[in-house]
Structure formats: C-alpha cells, structure tokens
Simulated scan of single mutants.
Amino acid sequence: MQRSYAERMEATFVSQGTFRREGNQITLTDNRGDAGRYMVQDNSLIVLDQDGKPVTGALTSKYVLHRQLLANPEKWKAQAANGIDFIAMGTEPFWNVSLREGQWLIFQTPDKRDSSRIPVQLEKAGGTGWTYTGELDGQLFRLAIYTEFSSDGMSDRIYRYRTTFETNGKKLSGTGVALRGAISGNSAGGSWVLQDILEPGKSLQSLFSQKTPTLLIDTIARKLSGSTSCNRFNGAWMNGSELPFNAAQLAMTRMACAGEGETVFLAAFKKVNGFRCIADELLMYQDNRVLLRWKKL
C-alpha cells in the first residue's frame, strides 16, 4: 500500500501486508500487525475507527477517501509514436521534459519552446526509481523518476510517477507518465513468483498447495514466459506500461490440471492491462484495481 498526504504528495509511505474484504468493509494489515479498516461506499472509502465505526465530528470529511483516476497515456499517443518514452511535467512554474529512446531529453517551458536535444545517460536505476543526467553547452541537467503516485496539483488525476528536474541550480517537482515502457519495463525484467491473487474468497494457499505460478520477463528480448503451476506459457512482452502483454496471443501447453488454481490465475492474468514495480514487488492491474502481486526471485 502506498499512502501520502494530499497537501504534500512527495511524502510517500509504502508498506506491505495483507488485504481482506468482508461485505462492504476492507481491512489492511501491514507486516507490523497494524491494521486499518475502511468502509466501501460508492467510489469512496470511509476510514473506520478501532470499533469499526465511521469517524464523527468536525473532521468527518477528512476521513473520506475519494477514488481518483489515473492519467491515461493515450493522451500522449502521438508522442509515443515519435519515439518518446517518458514525459515529466510540472506546474508552478509550468515545465515539460520529454525522454526519447532513453538517450535524449527535451526541456521546455512556456518561455522556452525550442527543441534542443540534451544527450543523457542512465546514472542510476532501481526498483524505486531512475536518474538520467546530461550536459549541454556547459549546463548540467538531471531528471529523477520515482515509482510513486503523484498529483499535478490542478486536476483530480493521479500519475504513476513522481519526478524532479534540476537545471540552472533550480529543482522542479512534478509528475510523470511512461509512454513506451522503457522506464517501467526495465524494472519488470527478471524472475517472479506469485504472492497473491486479489480475488474475493480465494487465497494463494487454497489454490496452489504445491507449486505456485512463476513469471520470467526479458525486457531486452521482449519475451514473457512462465508457469501457471501446471502448464507453461510464453509470448511477447511489449514493454508498454499500460498493456505489457496480450494474453490472447500467449502460447500454452495443455496438460489437464487438478483443482481450480490455474483457472482462477488465468482469469485474472487475462484481465491485466497495466503494471507497476515497487522495490522487489510487481503489481499487475486491471485499470485501477490490483489483480496479481508478484515477488522478485
């Protein structure tokens, strides 16, 4: 779970644990045993107190969490077709940085509309972010990308990445969106084992008593392979942050499998239309809903 205060999105707290839903109530328990309880109501979550009741009083409205939509990269489809991998942007002041093919940056503001290419190189990469640095005409540039949700401060949209851009001794803060997967795709590479299927009434232990589904992602060769715990599958990894693979085009063996584990897994796997990495954890989404949680081997 990732939490942040609306007034300061840069202060992000990440924790891991378990998720349980009973009726219209959700309980999130982190690895330290601390539990948070919420009540689902339309498109909102109402924070509950220790007795499982809504908080009352003058601050009641502060304990209602409203669903916010993720920014859709389709808006930047033309830029993606032109080889742009990632767009970072900010307000107050307005600024925009395009990362192209992982090799060039283009920095623009309302007062600076030229398209000078700034050659950059990947200085640092990891499960929590990436840093690109470059120099042009003696001026240093640094783009940092963090795998944290962020807000542009002007709309109700939430972005999958938080960004900072440093130039001329100034540090600009903003949001970011991956267009072609060069950012998020790199962190997904490697071997993974399934940790959880977020399906009501189903647990990993009850579905898979012996073997657990595994996944191997090769972002260089753009290949995906794995096991349902019974059958093997493989296909293309499209290095796209919003649609990493096409489940309908996966090749799979056809052994008869005991139990419902494979059926439940494939039903969730075929719904995936996005993913996100946080440290050694891979989350697969259908829109804003997490379906599968993987751990890196």
Rank of each mutant, 00 (worst) to 15 (best):
E123Y: 03
L48H: 06
E166H: 08
A81K: 14
A251T: 13
G274A: 15
L243S: 13
V177W: 06
I158H: 09
G83D: 00
S150A: 15
R142D: 07
L198P: 09
D49C: 10
Y63I: 00
A267Q: 14
T253I: 04
M252W: 00
L292H: 06
K296L: 03
G261F: 10
S155F: 10
Y5W: 09
L105W: 07
K295M: 03
T253L: 05
G90F: 09
L172V: 05
N186V: 14
Q249G: 02
L282H: 02
L45T: 05
C257M: 11
S4A: 05
C257S: 08
W192P: 04
N234A: 12
V97I: 14
V14W: 08
M252Q: 12
R3G: 02
E10T: 06
V97G: 04
G33L: 06
I217M: 03
R289H: 09
S184R: 11
P54E: 07
P200L: 03
T60C: 00
Q41A: 11
D42C: 00
D85K: 11
D114T: 13
H66C: 01
L292C: 04
S4C: 06
I26H: 06
Q210K: 15
F19C: 04
E148Y: 09
H66F: 02
D51L: 08
I145C: 07
H66V: 10
M255L: 14
N239P: 00
P54I: 05
R157G: 13
M1L: 08
S209A: 12
R117T: 02
T147E: 11
I183A: 03
Q121Y: 11
Q195M: 12
V14Q: 11
G201W: 08
Q210D: 14
T29H: 03
G23S: 06
T175C: 14
S241T: 11
V14T: 13
W294C: 07
A221W: 01
R21V: 11
G129Y: 05
R8M: 01
G174H: 10
G126A: 08
A178P: 10
N24L: 06
L69F: 02
S15V: 14
P200E: 13
F165E: 07
D196W: 03
S4L: 05
A258N: 12
E123D: 13
L194A: 07
A267M: 06
G261H: 09
F245N: 10
R67Y: 12
D85W: 12
A267L: 01
E242K: 04
E242Q: 13
L140E: 15
P119N: 10
G134N: 05
S155L: 04
W76V: 00
V47I: 14
G134K: 09
Q108Y: 07
W76N: 09
K295A: 12
D49K: 10
D156E: 15
L204S: 01
L215G: 01
N96P: 02
P110N: 08
Y285V: 02
G52V: 03
C230T: 04
Q139V: 15
K112N: 08
E260I: 05
N82G: 04
G126F: 05
Q79L: 15
L283S: 05
E74Y: 07
S155T: 15
